[in-house]
């Protein structure tokens, strides 16, 4: 049984149709002794990817794919890294993206696939002033 209802699926498919550039979701999970969020994250991503040909899911082994872990700075699992045409968008998700975490996931996929950030002009100006590495973590809960 799917995690998404029939009506959610229809709405979501319509939103995702705006995507023009291929989006890859790198999913880092641990097969043995991994967190219970791993399989849930995989199911969520697979369902979303099934709604649009331009979205693909590539699974990475958290234990074995150390090169990719280093490249994308992945220190926990499950972790999702959003790529736009193979390039890192620097948008990440830690934990299964369910509940309130699901909308930000969809928004990040849309952003990666459309390139339209819809930021206010003042924000764009401030971002131009950022010249040093800046790591933002946003904690939330699924319910």
């Amino acid at each position: 049984m799917g995690l998404l209802s029939e009506s959610d699926t229809q709405v979501l498919r319509q939103h995702l149709s705006a995507i023009e550039t291929p989006v890859t979701l790198l999913l880092f999970t641990q097969t043995f002794g991994g967190s219970e969020g791993g399989p849930i994250a995989k199911q969520v991503l697979d369902e979303v990817a099934s709604l649009n040909d331009k979205i693909s899911v590539v699974e990475k082994n958290f234990v074995l794919d150390t090169e990719d872990r280093t490249k994308y700075g992945v220190e926990r699992e499950p972790a999702i890294v959003v790529l736009r045409d193979g390039e890192d968008t620097r948008m990440r998700f830690l934990g299964a993206p369910t509940g309130y975490e699901f909308v930000p996931l969809v928004e990040s996929i849309l952003l990666a696939g459309t390139g339209n950030a819809e930021l206010e002009p003042a924000t764009v100006k401030m971002l131009e002033g950022v010249t040093s590495p800046t790591e933002i973590k946003v904690f939330s809960t699924p319910t």
Binding site: S35, G37, G73, T89, R90, M91, R92, F93, L94, G95, A96, P97, E101, P104, L105, S108, L111, A112, A117, L119, T123, V124, L127, E128, V130, T131, S132, P133, T134, E135, I136, K137, V138, F139, S140, T141, P142
Partner: peptide
């Protein structure tokens, strides 16, 4: 913000996990 600045990385963390 991360998407629009090459210096920013943004991670959404599921707090309970």
């Amino acid at each position: 913000m991360a998407f629009s600045s090459p210096h920013i990385t943004a991670t959404a963390v599921e707090a309970t996990s």
